[in-house]
Simulated scan of single mutants.
Amino acid sequence: MEFRPCIDLHEGKVKQIVGGSLNDSGAEENFVSQRDAGYYAELYREAGLRGGHVIALGPGNQEQIEKALAAYPGGLQVGGGINADNAKWYIDKGASHVIVTSFIFKDGEFFLENLKEIRKVIRKENLVIDLSCRKKDGKYYVVTNRWQKFTNFEVNEENMDFLSEFCDEFLVHAVDVEGLKSGIDEDLIKKLSRWVKIPCTYAGGISSIEDVKLIEKMSGGRMNYTIGSALDIFGGDIKFEDVIKL
């Protein structure tokens, strides 16, 4: 079980937002940093943390992405607008992995041909598939379009087994609790822990060190995790130094 840090970018700034609130008018913000992405990347590099993700939430974030990659080459994953045309560019720029979402999940559907297309330009070892999801009728489905649109792709063992043939890791935001600092999605964590055969990072709702310990207990130490809004470096109460000591 590893702590995977994050750098979320919105309108050219490092921010923490409430997961389902992003729309054309903006987003409900928990935190807006006065520091750039390079600062956080350097912080993670100095702490020896690998596998953190830099996520561009919409346009206007390219400069910040490049600052992060320059500060920590080989140590960060990049997501947000990744497709077959730009994936290799980010790897060449220093990203350890690219994170793909909307290129393979769009218009409510899963496009296997697009997944195969992106695999033609980068190796399996450099690809993370984002399965950020929301619950509907007792099941979890991948959501896209700023986490507003449900796809018909269910997050379950069969589908994760299939996708694991194409990628190195999964990233799963529990969108219903993302950014709320109100506790984790225990049902989702239990299910992911049973289903995944490759590394998987859970994000969403962590509000305390106790939540982290609960994730470890429920997953048997198999689930990696991300803390966003609740971390002190993003205005929260959990001390970054305490997390990296776990």
Rank of each mutant, 00 (worst) to 15 (best):
Q148Y: 02
E157V: 06
F105D: 06
T144H: 06
Q34Y: 12
G179N: 08
Q34P: 01
R194M: 14
V243P: 01
E113Y: 14
K135R: 15
I82D: 01
K191T: 06
K213V: 04
L180Y: 13
L188N: 01
D242W: 11
I233S: 02
E165P: 00
G58N: 02
A70R: 10
T144P: 09
Y39M: 13
G204M: 04
F240R: 11
I122C: 13
E28A: 15
L9V: 11
I244F: 14
N152S: 15
F162C: 10
V100H: 05
Y140S: 08
S219D: 09
I227G: 01
L57G: 00
G26L: 12
E42C: 05
I129M: 08
Y44T: 04
L214R: 15
G74E: 08
D242R: 13
F240P: 07
G221W: 10
K139M: 01
F31T: 11
Y140T: 02
G20I: 10
T101P: 00
H173D: 05
V155K: 01
G235Y: 14
F105A: 09
I82Y: 04
K116T: 07
L188S: 00
V54R: 12
G179A: 06
F3W: 15
E125F: 01
N86E: 11
A47T: 06
Q62L: 14
G220H: 07
S21V: 04
N30G: 03
D232C: 04
D24A: 13
G220T: 10
V78N: 06
L246W: 08
R123P: 08
N30R: 15
D242L: 03
I184C: 04
E117S: 12
I233E: 00
K120P: 08
L131G: 05
T144E: 03
I17V: 15
A84E: 14
A230K: 06
T144Y: 01
E241Q: 01
G205L: 05
V121M: 05
K197P: 09
I104N: 03
C167V: 12
C167M: 03
E154S: 09
Y202I: 02
K15D: 01
V143K: 08
K136A: 10
K13F: 12
L171A: 10
R4L: 00
I198R: 08
N126K: 07
E46M: 11
F166G: 06
T151C: 10
A95L: 07
L43C: 00
E158P: 05
Y90W: 13
H97M: 00
E2F: 13
C6H: 11
D211G: 08
I184E: 04
R134F: 05
G58R: 01
G19S: 03
N159P: 03
K245E: 06
D168N: 15
E46L: 14
D211C: 05
E169L: 12
G81I: 07
A70N: 07
I55C: 01
R123H: 12
G108Q: 05
V243Y: 01
D242A: 13
G80Y: 04
T101N: 03
L131R: 05
Y225H: 12
I104H: 02
V177G: 03
I55A: 00
G183Q: 06
E241I: 00
R194C: 11
I91D: 00
I82K: 04
F3T: 11
G221K: 10
I82G: 00
D232V: 06
E158D: 15
L192F: 13
E154H: 07
T151A: 10
M160K: 02
Y140A: 01
F170N: 00
Q77D: 08
A47Q: 01
G48V: 13
V128I: 14
E63I: 06
